[in-house]
Design a protein around this nucleic acid. Structure first.
Lengths: 234, 234
DNA sequence: CCACGTCCTTAAGATGCCGTAAAGATGCAG
DNA sequence: CTGCATCTTTACGGCATCTTAAGGACGTGG
């Protein structure tokens, strides 16, 4: 929607101390910040202003944060970064499954916050600028040709099994975004049950062996303990 | 068809929130938009107004979206972009097989939607303006003369049966692209049954015996386990 | 220090797809 | 009708792939 020079960021946070801290930091780095302190106002602002990114605290006074995400996700693909207290671990996962892009756990450093904002804005602009004919993906030595249906590393074709390829594509299409285990298994197997998690681990292993420079110390596919995995842009 | 200055777009969507969002976005970018909210009205509008492009939500109250595509495709080559909340692969494949040109999964960004619209309108106008296409094909020792209707390997003419030739041309015209079994059988036999798959394997074998240097270790026609086949450019 | 949970790694067994050959069916020319 | 070319069907061995299970590494909290 808006590709103006200054990205507009919607900050949803009811703790005024944190709100001021974050908005000041963002403001200093050239972002335009809208501040609201409840879910209702957040949805209204998202509809009317069409922000480039949303930072959402899960602990809101009026609506459940998950519901806010679901509502916005029904029509918009705007990046949503969730802020949560450590006590809300399960909520964090639910938020990601509902369509959130990333999460920050309180307390967080401003540097980390800014890094996440940059990464998600970058991914978002990538996704919107690529139209249907942009059917390739590059990340470091890795190259995927979606139309042809294969991937290469350092120019040499990788022999990936169907499931490995599916998994790779899923991660690549959501680069810089944390994907929960349940989301991944659901996308790959359609219906997900617990036992799929064991298989998923094996596939992660075999995939890493094929695409990572040092499979024992993976750079591309990072795991988030108790949450899921993320493909990191190199 | 109609190549007026302002392309007319037919929007088929029963969710009024999404309908308004999309139609507003399209309107702002200079498209003329017709809005309908069920399959019956969609077909009527497509017949009477002859839109330049159709955006179709698969989840309609009256008719199945796939059926709408089939109906329209029976007389028109207008680009059809499908919108669906379903992420299932099978739905995507069914829609594309039925004749859809592109696919958007909810939620989507407005930017992405506009990009797809532009891309498909461009391709559509390309297709209607281009009159001639390449009448030969070369790949390594293989040479196909579409106009004359025969193929050679190392200059010597191959004696291919009609079905083998059909299969070869199909692969050649989609070089470097993976073709699914169902797509291939559908293209060759019109209607595809499960049992055709067995035949297809036999034809793959005989074709490979004729065009591959080492039929036991094929280079040109590669198989993708559980998916399909691909002709590889040498 | 131990108990626990999560993740990593490996290997073996089960499953299903693919390649292959050969026999049977079909269609067409003479 | 007969022979030939082509297509379809059937059957089976081999192998790629997936699943399952078990043990080890690592960090965390009691």
């Amino acid at each position: 929607m808006n590709n103006a020079a200054k990205p507009r960021i919607l900050l949803v946070e009811d703790d005024l101390t944190v709100q001021n801290l974050v908005s000041t930091a963002l403001d200093l780095h050239g972002y335009v910040v809208s501040k609201v302190c409840n879910g209702q106002a957040a949805i209204m602002d998202a509809v009317s202003h069409g922000p480039s990114l949303i930072m959402l605290d899960l602990g809101l006074p009026d609506i459940d944060g998950i519901e806010v995400i679901t509502k916005i996700r029904s029509w918009s693909a705007v990046p949503i970064i969730v802020i949560s207290a450590r006590t809300e671990d399960s909520d964090k996962i639910a938020a990601l499954d509902a369509g959130a892009d990333d999460y920050l756990t309180k307390p967080f450093s401003v540097d980390e916050l800014l890094a996440r904002v940059r990464a998600n804005l970058r991914r978002s602009s990538m996704a919107s600028s690529e139209s249907t004919e942009a059917s390739t993906f590059d990340n470091g030595p890795l190259h995927i040709d979606y139309a042809a249906g294969y991937a290469t590393k350092d120019g040499r074709e990788l022999s990936l099994t169907p499931t490995e390829y599916k998994l790779l594509v899923l991660l690549a299409k959501n680069v810089d975004k944390v994907l929960t285990h349940t989301f991944i298994t659901h996308e790959i197997w359609g219906t997900s049950w617990d036992s799929d998690l064991a298989s998923l681990r094996v596939f992660m292993r075999t995939l890493r062996k094929k695409i990572e420079a040092d499979p024992s110390h993976p750079k591309m596919i990072q795991t988030h303990m108790g949450v899921g995995s993320r493909m990191q842009r190199l």
